[in-house]
Amino acid sequence: MSSETKASPSFSVANPPLSSSMTRYRVMVEKELLELVRSFKLLWVPLVFILLGIMQPVSTYYMPVILEHAGSLPDGTVIDIPLPQAAEVLAQTLQQFGTLGILVLVLVCMGSVSGERNSGAASLILVKPVSPLSYVGSKWTAMLMLAWGSLAAGYLASWYYTGLLIGAVPLSKVIGSLLIYGLWLTFVVSITILFSSLLRSPAAAAFSTLVGSVVLSLLAGLFPKALGWNPGALSGFASQAVVSEISDSGKFGLAILVVFIGMASAVLAAAGALRRSSAVE
């Protein structure tokens, strides 16, 4: 990206340490957002989520018609698929986000740190008075804004279409499950950034994150009693929140706590890895 955005205007000003590091952090976040805009990520990632969100209610609604026209069924076959509840369609949308959405998000931020380390841009930035923590933190903040914005756009689009085609779902439930699901995405993005600064290859970072998130979800599904508190259970909690009520609020609270601890330690560990070696030897 352009070099003038990297140079913080506050360098020459003798600010008190805290406020100047905050200023640098803000400038770095603005630089990351500018990069998201210039690479069109801020445009196409939300569009993909909106597309995923719209397709779910539409394809559910037209499934009988699609089967009738596409399938080579014998004449007179009665296709009788009961239309699911509106809230179930939203839960299915969350499942779509959980597979394709997470795939897209992880692939988008897999190279955020490792790409700049490989190209040497990271060491160029880190010789300036920018701490590794604010460098990693700014990337993390920008990616989270992208993830939350895309999720909200896609989920609300899905909610609107579900209301149009199938039935109304109260907005409060939708917002609730949106917040819970956003926490899961937050966790996944944090882990991606951690692996991106630990591993040299972006593909390896993406692969580790995807395997890790699948394993967490599987563990939460297989052993709900013993491991129902891990962050992978949050996607299930989000579906529960929109369909009915969250059944186990103790485990739910624990999962939220684990997410916050996990993302804080992921960012700190990533910054630590950068402090040790800002460039790949």
Partner: peptide
Amino acid sequence: IDLSQILPIIAPIIVIQLILMVIALVL
């Protein structure tokens, strides 16, 4: 009849796909 009902519903899907395609082609 089906088509005229379906069209306003799937129009946004087509528009979004077109936008994605155009951005990708430009890049």
